[in-house]
Structure formats: structure tokens, C-alpha cells
Lab assay of single mutants.
Amino acid sequence: QGDIVVALYPYDGIHPDDLSFKKGEKMKVLEEHGEWWKAKSLLTKKEGFIPSNYVAKLN
């Protein structure tokens, strides 16, 4: 089961498979690959890669 993270900063995706998000948006982490994680937005239901240093895990 994936962790839920919250965006600390907004992110505008650079690549087509990036997931753009707004500050405060919550996402479910699907896979962790070093600095880039695959996640699904709980708001938009879209999936893509996010920079892990832009988010914090919720406990």
C-alpha cells in the first residue's frame, strides 16, 4: 500500500509523463525511484512522476 504525500510546493511537469500538482495537493505514492516517484493525485486521479523533494509523507 502506497504512502500518502502532500505537496510542499507547486510543480509544473516538464516531461509528458510528469504529474503536475499544486501546493497542498495530496497524492498516493505508487513507486519510489530515487529522486522521482510515480504517484497518483487524489484530486485529479492522474498518474505521473513527481520530484520527491517537493512532497512530504503524511503519517
Rank of each mutant, 00 (worst) to 15 (best):
I4E: 05
H15Y: 11
L30S: 05
D18Q: 15
Q1G: 12
N53D: 10
D17S: 11
V29W: 02
Y9E: 07
D3L: 15
F49P: 01
E31F: 09
V6M: 08
I4F: 08
D17F: 13
L58W: 12
Q1K: 13
L42T: 05
L43D: 10
G34Y: 04
G48A: 02
H15W: 11
L19A: 02
G13P: 07
P16W: 08
Y9K: 11
G24R: 03
V6C: 09
K45F: 14
Y54Q: 05
E32S: 11
Y54A: 08
P51R: 05
E25N: 02
V5K: 00
F49K: 09
G34N: 06
K38F: 15
P16H: 09
K28A: 10
P10F: 08
D18V: 10
E25Y: 01
L8W: 04
N53E: 09
L19K: 00
L30A: 03
P16E: 11
F49R: 13
K40A: 11
G24L: 03
G48L: 00
E32D: 14
T44F: 03
S52V: 09
W36C: 08
H33F: 12
P16V: 09
K22F: 07
S20Y: 04
F21L: 02
K28N: 06
Q1E: 12
K57W: 12
S41F: 01
T44Q: 04
W36P: 04
K45E: 14
I14D: 08
E35S: 13
W37Q: 07
L19W: 02
N59P: 15
E35H: 15
D12N: 12
I4Q: 04
G2M: 11
P16S: 09
W36I: 13
L19I: 04
P51V: 02
Y9L: 09
T44N: 07
K26P: 07
H33S: 09
V5W: 14
Y11W: 15
G48D: 00
K40V: 14
Y11T: 01
D12T: 15
K22I: 14
I50K: 01
E47D: 06
L58Q: 08
E25T: 02
L8F: 04
L42A: 03
W37T: 08
L43V: 11
G24A: 04
G13D: 02
L30M: 09
N59T: 13
I4V: 10
F21W: 01
V29F: 04
E35L: 14
L42Y: 07
P10T: 14
G2S: 12
E31K: 08
A56N: 06
W36F: 12
Q1P: 13
K28W: 15
V29R: 02
E35W: 13
Y11H: 05
I4W: 08
L19V: 03
T44R: 03
Y11V: 02
G13E: 04
V5H: 04
W37G: 02
I14A: 10
V29C: 04
H33T: 09
A7T: 03
I14C: 13
N59G: 13
E32R: 14
W37K: 13
L58Y: 11
G34L: 04
L30W: 05
G2P: 08
D12A: 13
A56L: 12
L30N: 03
A39C: 13
L58H: 07
K22V: 14
K22T: 09
K45M: 15
V29Q: 01
A7H: 01
S20T: 10
D17T: 12
G34H: 05
K23G: 05
L19H: 01
E32T: 13
K57G: 06
W37H: 09
K23A: 11
K46P: 00
K28E: 14
N59D: 13
E35K: 12
P10D: 15
E47C: 11
K22P: 04
V29Y: 02
L43Q: 08
D3H: 15
K57L: 11
D17R: 13
K22L: 09
L19C: 03
G2V: 10
E35G: 09
G2E: 10
G24S: 04
K40L: 13
M27C: 03
A7P: 00
K46V: 06
Y54S: 05
D12V: 15
E31P: 00
D18I: 08
Q1Y: 13
V6R: 05
D3C: 14
K26N: 06
